[in-house]
């Protein structure tokens, strides 16, 4: 019993030390998470834009998969990645999210809804040929742009 207590205390102390040494800041983790999330979005969107522009050959299966991924990403419940106090004033150099994302709430949620709708429409038709893909892809791009113009700074 004594040993178990000692062992637990040691583990607790150790994990505290490790976290402290790593300087773990849960808010910074959230920033990293959303930036990674946006990169995932980008890597699924880019091949679709490439196909629509004729830079990559259209492939119905791939297009459908990417579009489904994009829709899933858009619908992801990800509020935890945007905790209050993580705007680019408080975390200068780390994030590009403008304070407006919080101060003008729920505008950012409305922008997100526009994007969810656009990705949904795209996912429905992306596998039905290049023309179908082209007819819906513009709105998805507008969705990214609409949000970035209002809630993202140009530079870190």
């Amino acid at each position: 019993m004594r040993n178990i207590l000692r062992f637990s205390a040691a583990i607790a102390g150790l994990s505290f030390l490790v976290t402290a040494a790593a300087g773990d800041d849960p808010l910074e983790d959230a920033i990293k998470a959303r930036q990674g999330y946006m990169q995932v979005v980008k890597f699924n969107a880019a091949p679709l834009f490439g196909m629509a522009k004729g830079k990559i050959e259209y492939d119905a299966e791939a297009a459908k998969t990417y579009a489904n991924n994009l829709q899933a990403a858009a619908m992801m419940k990800n509020g935890a990645m945007w905790p209050e106090g993580t705007d680019n004033v408080s975390y200068a150099g780390k994030t590009r999210t403008l304070p407006e994302a919080w101060t003008t709430y729920p505008k950012v949620a409305e922008a997100n809804q526009v994007w969810i709708d656009a990705t949904g429409e795209l996912a429905r038709v992306a596998g039905d040929g290049l023309d179908a893909l082209r007819s819906k892809i513009g709105a998805v791009g507008e969705g990214c742009k609409g949000c970035h113009d209002d809630f993202r700074a140009e530079d870190f």
């Binding site: 980008k42 880019a46 834009f49 791009g141 990214c144 742009k145 970035h148 140009e154 530079d155 870190f156």
Partner: peptide, 24 residues
């Protein structure tokens, strides 16, 4: 523009930070 709407032909040749600065 996040490689989506458009990108300049040389954007792939420099760092992401450089691209952001050029775009700004």
């Amino acid at each position: 523009d996040d490689a989506l709407f458009a990108s300049g032909p040389l954007a792939g040749w420099i760092s992401t930070g450089g691209v952001l600065r050029a775009t700004a």
